[in-house]
Amino acid sequence: MMNIIIGQYVPGKSILHHMDPRSKLLAVFALIFIVFLANNWVTYGVIVILTLVAIVLSRVRLRFIYKGLKPILLVIIITFVLNAFFTKSGEAIFDYGWFHLTTGGLQQAAFISVRLLVIVIMTTLLTLTTTPIDITDGLENLLRPFKKLRFPVHEFALMMSIALRFIPTLMEETEKIMKAQTARGVEFSSGPLTQRIKAILPLLVPLFISAFKRAEDLAMAMEARGYRGDIGRTKLRLLKWGLKDSLLLLVVIVLIPVLVLLRG
């Protein structure tokens, strides 16, 4: 049987795992902006220390955090290099034609890279310690006020959860169709690129047809089970806001004046 992991969630029992998804979502969202308050060694130091504390609290192995970072690592490196070579301030360290490396440039590059790193690590920690369905629930709950503006919050959340539910099913199906088409002589993994792109078509067409059939069946089944939108619905999954959630938000809020005071 295939082992499909959706999202990056790593099961665990850490304090971060046990927190309410809402507090984590709010904290990460706020931190993305708060990070921009930092502008000198002290303020960046504070933020880096907080990030390290969060990593320790999550008790997630560094390997997983690295995995979350990997796709964005190149961007961070490029940002670092560009900033390092194109910012001219402070003493020159190295000067050759187009390239100027200055102490100010290096510092600027380091700051911006750290800023990016912190943002990515924070969001990674969120997805590592929260199941996708919890994130969905949390978002649905937080976005509730927007219902008044006719933003379809409930429908959006239901859509997310159904998508999560059907990803493994559709992946299994893709594999099945691929095998069936391979048996008919379609080559998916070898041959020239144009050929391989053409081979995707006999994969996509049956996949789409079956997905539409599934959608139709599902809609019918949901209606048969009394679904009629967000009217008079109760919920099984509960969100529990605890003391640690309030504490987390308190830390985030206190961080703002601290950074404002310390920044240069």
């Binding site: 089944a221 009394g226 109760t234 099984l236």
Partner: peptide, 30 residues
Amino acid sequence: MVFQNPDNQFVGTTVRDDVAFGMENHGVPR
């Protein structure tokens, strides 16, 4: 009503959630 295709009528992400789906729709207290 139980339909033919077992996959296409499973709404929840887990067994618990799926069994609860109908009750949620009908507003059964938690």
